[in-house]
Amino acid sequence: TEEVEKIVRELQKRGVSQEEIQRILKRNGIDPRDVEHVVRRLR
């Protein structure tokens, strides 16, 4: 989703690792598959 993408991009800008990003998003109830998808697209 748009929202997830924004969050991921923001965290990446701050130098947060992929694993940490995924952990944060999972904690916020976001589907890990969505996270994977977004992270892969932004690489």
Rank of each mutant, 00 (worst) to 15 (best):
Arg9Ser: 05
Arg40Ser: 10
Ile21Arg: 00
Val38Asp: 01
Ile24Asp: 01
Lys26Cys: 03
Lys26Asn: 09
Gln12Gly: 05
Arg43Ala: 14
Arg41Asp: 14
Arg9Val: 08
Val4Gln: 02
Lys6Ile: 07
Leu11Met: 12
Glu5Ala: 08
Arg43Pro: 11
Glu2Leu: 09
Arg27Ser: 13
Glu36Trp: 09
Thr1Arg: 11
Ile24Thr: 06
Ile30Asp: 01
Arg23Leu: 12
Lys6Tyr: 07
Thr1His: 10
Ile30Glu: 02
Leu42Lys: 04
Gln18Leu: 15
Ile7Arg: 07
Glu3Arg: 09
Arg9Ala: 06
Gln22Asn: 07
Arg23Ile: 10
Thr1Asn: 09
Arg33Lys: 13
Gly15Glu: 03
Val16Pro: 01
Arg40Tyr: 03
Leu11Pro: 00
Val8Tyr: 14
Pro32Gln: 04
Glu19Asp: 12
Arg41Phe: 12
Val8Cys: 03
Leu25Gln: 00
Arg23Thr: 12
Gln22Thr: 13
Glu2Gln: 10
Arg33Trp: 05
Glu19Lys: 11
Glu10Gly: 07
Ile21Glu: 00
Val8Leu: 07
Glu36Met: 06
Lys26Pro: 00
Arg41His: 13
Glu19Gln: 11
Glu19Phe: 11
Thr1Gln: 08
Val38Asn: 00
Val4Ile: 14
Asp31Ile: 01
Ile30Leu: 07
Val35Asn: 00
Leu42Tyr: 04
Gly29Thr: 02
Asp31Gln: 02
Arg9Glu: 04
Arg41Val: 11
Val38Gln: 01
Gln22Met: 15
Lys26Gly: 10
Ser17Gly: 08
Asp34Ala: 08
Val4His: 02
Arg33Val: 08
Lys6Leu: 07
Ser17Met: 06
Lys6Asn: 06
Arg43Ile: 14
Leu25Cys: 01
Glu36Lys: 04
Glu19Pro: 06
Glu19Leu: 11
Val35Leu: 08
Gly15Asp: 03
His37Ser: 13
Ile7Phe: 08
Leu11Arg: 00
Glu20Lys: 06
Gln18Thr: 15
Glu5Lys: 05
Val16Tyr: 12
Asn28Cys: 13
Pro32Phe: 05
Val8Gly: 01
Asp34Cys: 07
Arg40Gln: 13
Leu42Asp: 05
Gln22Tyr: 15
Glu20Tyr: 06
Glu20Ser: 08
Glu5His: 05
Arg40Phe: 03
Val4Pro: 01
Ile30Arg: 02
Lys26Ser: 12
Arg14Glu: 10
Lys13Ile: 07
Val39Ala: 04
Glu2Cys: 14
Arg43Asp: 13
Glu2Met: 09
Arg27Ala: 14
Lys13His: 08
Lys26Trp: 11
Lys26Thr: 14
Asp31Asn: 10
Ile21Pro: 00
Ile30Cys: 02
Thr1Pro: 10
Asp34Tyr: 13
Leu42Gly: 06
Arg40Val: 09
Val16Trp: 11
Ile21Lys: 00
Val8Arg: 01
Gly15Met: 04
Lys6Ser: 06
Gly15Asn: 06
Lys26Leu: 15
Arg41Ser: 12
Asn28Ser: 13
Ile24Ala: 05
Val8Phe: 13
Asp34Ile: 15
Ile24Lys: 03
Leu25Trp: 00
Arg27His: 11
Gln22Val: 15
Arg43Cys: 15
Ser17Asp: 08
Asp34Pro: 01
Glu20Asn: 10
Arg41Pro: 09
Gln12Ala: 11
Asp34Gly: 02
Leu25Glu: 00
Arg33Asp: 10
Val8His: 01
Val39Leu: 15
Arg33Gly: 05
Gly29Val: 01
Leu42Val: 06
Gln18Cys: 14
Ile24Trp: 07
Leu25Tyr: 01
Lys6Trp: 07
Arg33Phe: 05
Gln12Ile: 15
Val38His: 03
Ile30Ala: 07
Glu19Gly: 11
Lys6Met: 10
Glu19Ala: 11
Asp31Cys: 00
Pro32Leu: 05
Val35Cys: 03
Pro32Met: 05
Val8Glu: 00
Ile30Gln: 03
Val39Gly: 01
His37Pro: 02
Arg14Ala: 12
Glu3Pro: 06
Ser17His: 07
Arg14Pro: 01
Gly29Pro: 02
Ile7Thr: 05
Gly15Ala: 03
Arg14Leu: 11
Arg23Pro: 00
Ile21Thr: 01
Ile21Asn: 00
Ile7Asn: 02
Gly15Tyr: 05
Glu19Ser: 12
Gln22Trp: 11
Val38Met: 05
Asn28Gly: 09
Arg40Pro: 02
Ile21Ala: 05
Glu10Val: 09
Arg14Tyr: 11
Lys26Glu: 14
Ile24Phe: 06
Pro32Ile: 06
Arg14Phe: 11
Val16His: 12
Ile24Leu: 08
Lys26Arg: 10
Arg9Met: 08
Ile7Pro: 00
Val4Trp: 05
Lys26His: 13
Arg33Ser: 06
Val8Thr: 02
Asn28Lys: 13
Leu25Val: 02
Ser17Arg: 07
Asn28Ile: 14
His37Ile: 14
Lys13Asp: 08
Glu5Met: 12
Leu42Ser: 03
Glu5Arg: 04
Asp34Thr: 15
Arg33Gln: 06
Glu2Gly: 07
Arg41Ala: 14
Glu3Leu: 12
Glu5Asp: 05
Lys26Tyr: 13
His37Lys: 14
Glu5Leu: 09
Gly29Phe: 03
Val35Ala: 07
Ile30Trp: 12
Arg27Thr: 09
Arg14Gln: 09
Val8Ile: 11
Asp31Thr: 03
Val39Trp: 07
Gln22Leu: 14
Ile7Lys: 06
Arg43His: 14
Arg41Gly: 12
Glu20Phe: 06
Glu3Cys: 00
Lys6Cys: 05
Glu3Ser: 09
Ile24Gly: 00
Asn28Gln: 14
Val35Glu: 01
Val39Tyr: 08
Gly15Thr: 01
Lys6Glu: 06
Leu11Ser: 01
Gln22Asp: 05
Val35Tyr: 13
Val39Ser: 02
Asp34Gln: 11
Leu42Gln: 04
Gln12Tyr: 15
Val39Cys: 15
Val39Phe: 15
Lys13Trp: 07
Arg33His: 08
Val16Phe: 12
Gln22Lys: 14
Asp31Gly: 03
Glu36Cys: 14
Ile30Phe: 14
Ile21His: 00
Arg27Val: 12
Glu2Tyr: 11
Arg27Cys: 04
His37Phe: 08
Glu20Gln: 07
Asn28Tyr: 13
Glu19Val: 09
Leu11Val: 00
Ser17Asn: 09
Glu36Asn: 02
Arg9Phe: 05
Val8Pro: 00
Val35Gly: 01
Ile21Met: 10
Glu36Ile: 05
Val35Trp: 12
Val35Ser: 02
Ile24Arg: 06
Gly29Lys: 03
Val35Thr: 02
Ile21Val: 05
Lys26Asp: 09
Asp34Val: 15
Thr1Val: 11
Val39Glu: 02
Gln18Pro: 12
Val4Lys: 02
Arg27Met: 12
Val38Trp: 08
Glu2Asp: 11
Gln22Phe: 14
Pro32Glu: 07
Arg23Trp: 09
Val4Glu: 01
Pro32Asp: 09
Val39Asn: 02
Arg33Glu: 09
Arg14Lys: 10
Ile24Val: 07
Arg43Met: 15
Gln12Asp: 07
Gln12Glu: 04
Glu5Tyr: 14
Ile7Gln: 08
Leu11Lys: 00
Asn28Glu: 13
Lys13Arg: 10
Gln18His: 12
Val39Gln: 04
Arg9Cys: 00
Leu25Met: 07
Asn28Ala: 13
Arg14Val: 08
Val39Lys: 03
Asn28Phe: 14
Ile30Val: 13
Glu36Leu: 06
Glu5Ile: 09
Arg43Gly: 14
Arg23Val: 10
Gly15Ser: 03
Leu11Glu: 00
Lys26Ile: 15
Thr1Lys: 08
Ile24Met: 07
Lys13Gly: 08
Val4Leu: 15
Ile30Lys: 02
Gln18Trp: 15
Glu20Cys: 03
Leu25Gly: 00
Val39Met: 15
Arg43Tyr: 15
Val8Met: 06
Gln18Gly: 10
Arg23Cys: 03
Arg27Lys: 11
Val35Gln: 01
Ile21Cys: 04
Glu36Pro: 02
Gly29Trp: 03
Gln12Phe: 15
Val35Phe: 10
Lys13Ala: 07
Thr1Ala: 10
Arg9Leu: 06
Glu10Asn: 08
Gly29His: 04
His37Met: 13
Leu42Pro: 07
Arg9Lys: 09
Arg9Asn: 04
Glu20Asp: 12
Val16Ala: 08
Gln12Val: 15
Arg33Met: 09
Gln18Phe: 15
Val35Lys: 00
Gly15Gln: 04
Arg33Tyr: 06
Ile21Trp: 07
Ile7Glu: 04
Ile7Asp: 01
Arg33Pro: 02
Gly15Lys: 05
Val35Pro: 01
Val8Ser: 01
Arg33Leu: 08
Asp34Leu: 15
Arg41Gln: 13
Gly29Cys: 06
Arg43Gln: 15
Ile30Asn: 03
Glu3Val: 09
Glu3His: 10
Arg43Phe: 15
Glu5Gly: 03
Val8Ala: 12
Glu2Ser: 11
Ser17Trp: 03
Gln18Asn: 13
Leu25Asn: 00
Arg33Asn: 08
Val38Arg: 01
Glu36Phe: 03
Glu5Asn: 05
Ile7Tyr: 08
Gln18Val: 15
His37Trp: 11
Gln12Lys: 08
Asp31Val: 02
Lys13Asn: 10
Val4Met: 07
Leu11Thr: 00
Ile24Ser: 02
Glu36Gly: 03
His37Glu: 15
Ile24Pro: 00
Glu10Tyr: 12
Glu5Thr: 06
